[in-house]
């Protein structure tokens, strides 16, 4: 049961949230993107052993989305930032 630090509500139990998977995925132009790019957008995801840049949704709370930098091995949460912020640099230490 992880403890997720919602930037609006504070640290809450994992059960209040839904993990939205990999963050910073740009939706390609649906009318011009080639098939391979569109398929990757739908189905291809990173699976890191280590730092993961994820989006989380506080479904049973403020219902807001936010970004989290989380380690998939130790489950340490290093950083939380807004949904619209860019991917932070140099977290890989």
């Amino acid at each position: 049961m992880q403890n997720i630090p919602c930037p609006f509500c504070g640290p809450r139990d994992e059960v209040e949230f839904r993990c939205g998977g990999q963050s910073h995925i740009t939706r390609p132009n649906p009318s011009s993107a080639p098939d391979a790019e569109w398929a990757a957008y739908l189905y291809v995801r990173e699976n890191p052993k280590g730092w993961s840049f994820e989006r989380w949704h506080h479904s049973f709370g403020c219902r807001q989305w936010f970004n989290v930098v989380r380690n998939t091995v130790t489950h340490e949460i290093r950083q939380v930032y807004a949904m619209t912020d860019p991917k932070p640099e140099g977290v890989h230490s």
């Binding site: 839904r18 939205g20 939706r27 989006r55 949704h57 479904s59 219902r63 989305w65 949904m83 619209t84």
Partner: peptide, 13 residues
């Protein structure tokens, strides 16, 4: 409603 929120907060902000 969650589906709508996801598009509004993550894509079409």
């Amino acid at each position: 409603a969650e589906w709508f929120e996801e598009w509004l907060q993550c894509e079409w902000v």
